[in-house]
Amino acid sequence: MNKRVLIVDDSGYMRSKIQEVLTNEGFEVAGTAPNGETAIDMALELKPDFITLDNILPDMTGLDVLKTIKEQGLESVVIIISAVGQQSTINEGLELGASEYITKPFSEEHLIRSIRKVLD
């Protein structure tokens, strides 16, 4: 069965882009969320295999989302997407239970490679 993914990003363009790349790659996009609130609810509802989580969201940080869903015992693999130079964010994310991080801007290959790395 195809792995199911939840895409979290505040930019509509970014969501469409990631969705396209991952669909082409054979993943099933279970949902996309534009803000932290929706992201948490959808993650807990859909229980995707993995989540691409943008750290900068309008209502909270990706780390807030990560913290809440991990507290709820969600086992989805989480890949943090953050801007360059936010090393403290990356470290904290990994501590909170994220499996991988990608810094923006990133190439399609980089994204896919990172995902494959943590899923396999």
């Binding site: 609130e37 948490i40 959808m42 909270m60 807030d64 809440t68």
Partner: peptide, 11 residues
């Protein structure tokens, strides 16, 4: 589902 909103408020 309420945890999203709850987290948002906490933030």
């Amino acid at each position: 589902s309420y945890l999203g909103l709850k987290t948002k408020l906490a933030v």
